[in-house]
Design a protein around this nucleic acid. Structure first.
Lengths: 108, 108
DNA sequence: CGTGTAAGGAATTCTGACACG
DNA sequence: CGTGTAAGGAATTCTGACACG
């Protein structure tokens, strides 16, 4: 659950390769970043670095735009999903905290 | 067994990122290719592209060189390993062929 | 709104060679 | 043998802007 994901989420891919892998133009890829849909890392020189996850996300974004969804709405969707995810994480942490406090049970 | 590996073995990483990830110099990385220890893809423009597997292999190579092993000997080791692997693959295929011929058993 | 494009510059990468040892 | 380096050039990427609609 750590080593597997380390490949998928590691931001190491330059925009040219992303262009090839997604079929999108660099203009499109940069624009989606401008609209806060995607968040590449930067090299020391300023080049964008993407992960495989980012590439999958870009393809989803492009599909939605192809369906007529606007970037603003895509962003709202993503925010909502993120909140759901965070909520679950917090709930789990609270339950874990309760268990620890009462029984000292701890996940390995 | 296909999608997981597709990330690890996909050659999408430029030499600069490989340098950062391995701590090796570009000179070293290119030299190991010259000695036939590593085989990056090339972009249309000629830039080298490496996979995460390549990065792991580069680290192994560098460790061996640090131990005093010469590139030629590392190459022999790698060849030997590859032959063992191929032998196993061929043996499996032959067994599979026998089973198919006699019983029509087929792997899904 | 989402995308194409030309512009100019900076960062990245490439090859072949000389150097050291 | 394995690696550093300076050299010159080519490929890659960056930003800000104009255009269309």
């Amino acid at each position: 659950m750590e080593n597997e994901q380390s490949y998928k989420d590691k931001k190491v891919i330059t925009i040219g390769v992303v262009r090839e892998l997604t079929g999108l133009s660099e203009r499109q890829i940069r624009y989606y970043e401008e609209r806060k849909l995607i968040f590449p890392d930067r090299s020391s020189g300023g080049s964008r670095k993407y992960s495989f996850s980012d590439i999958e996300l870009l393809i989803e974004i492009a599909n939605k735009i192809g369906d007529g969804v606007q970037t603003y709405d895509i962003r709202q969707e993503m925010k909502k999903k993120q909140i759901e995810k965070d909520t679950k994480t917090i709930r789990n942490k609270m339950i874990q905290g309760q268990l620890n406090a009462q029984f000292g049970i701890r996940k390995q």
